[in-house]
Simulated scan of single mutants.
Amino acid sequence: MALWLDGEVIENYAWNQELFSLRVRTEQPFEFIAGQFVRLGLAHEDGRVQRAYSLVNGPDDSVLDFLVNRVHDGLFSPMLHGLKAGQKIQVSQPPSGFFTLNEVPDGDSLWLIATGTGIGPYLSMLTTDIPYERFKRIHLIHAVRYSADLAYRDLIQSWVDKHLGQLQYQPIVSREDFAGALRGRVPALIESGALQAACKDELNDRAQVMLCGNPEMIRDAKVLLDSMGLPKNLRRKPGNVTVEHYW
């Protein structure tokens, strides 16, 4: 049974009009594995409203960080969007999910591919030493519609500078040109070889790929990667592609 912790909003940071980071401090710290998620809860006239969100912060951080996109016809994300510092929110315990690096087999390269807010779990992973100790090359790939949706760029760049030659950040922007970004859908960029060329690396049997975000991207990329000799990773049969269906 889930336990609900009382939390306080520390900051509601707007990346743009729809995308925001909600930062929360709970009454007591808790342990989680980078890549896991919790449920956020708010009081509502029909009872508690809740939804699962991945933790963006690292396991050692005292402030919890959640990357959220407001869905205008939804119920919960507009409520989160309107929260201000000092307001209360509930956080579920224990954390859940198996989209973690300890579920990923060893390899030479790690490809962290996300669309939209699906980048959240990867940012949590990259705060830890684990990916840098296990993989020679790490590619963080973030696909969005507009450049304004490329959240946490300064933080990511600081990690790239710290792990120069090991960590690479490759944005993909589908609806406008943006310096340094590829343009198009993730599966198409893989199929054409454009993503591999930009990353100066190969998607071969020594690559481990994680996919998080839009279900269509995951479905199409998974089928394509399987045809390239990179099967889905299962506990009973280890492979090369680990997925998280983010919504």
Rank of each mutant, 00 (worst) to 15 (best):
W4Y: 08
G7R: 00
E8N: 10
E8W: 13
V9P: 03
I10C: 11
I10S: 08
E11H: 10
Y13C: 02
A14Y: 13
A14V: 00
W15R: 00
N16T: 06
Q17K: 12
E18Q: 13
F20E: 06
R23W: 09
R25K: 15
R25A: 10
E27Y: 10
Q28S: 15
P29K: 09
F30Q: 04
E31I: 02
E31H: 14
F32T: 01
I33R: 07
A34W: 02
Q36F: 13
F37R: 01
R39Y: 15
L40G: 06
G41R: 00
A43I: 00
H44L: 06
E45P: 00
G47A: 12
G47R: 10
Q50G: 07
Q50E: 14
R51M: 09
A52M: 10
S54K: 03
S54Y: 11
V56C: 08
G58H: 11
D61T: 04
L64R: 02
D65Y: 06
D65K: 01
F66W: 14
V68D: 05
V71T: 09
V71E: 15
V71F: 12
G74C: 08
L75V: 12
L75H: 11
L75R: 15
F76E: 07
S77D: 10
M79V: 04
M79S: 08
G82I: 00
L83K: 07
K84W: 04
Q87R: 10
K88A: 15
V91Q: 01
Q93A: 08
P94C: 12
P94A: 13
P94K: 11
P95K: 09
P95I: 12
S96D: 06
F98V: 01
F99T: 00
T100P: 03
N102Q: 13
E103K: 14
V104E: 02
P105D: 13
P105S: 13
D106P: 01
G107E: 12
L110V: 01
W111L: 03
T117V: 05
T117A: 03
I119Q: 02
Y122D: 05
L123T: 04
L123P: 04
S124T: 07
M125G: 01
L126N: 00
T128H: 07
P131D: 11
Y132K: 06
E133C: 02
R134H: 13
R134K: 14
F135A: 04
K136M: 05
I138R: 04
L140T: 01
L140K: 01
A143I: 06
A143E: 02
R145T: 08
S147E: 13
A148S: 15
A148V: 11
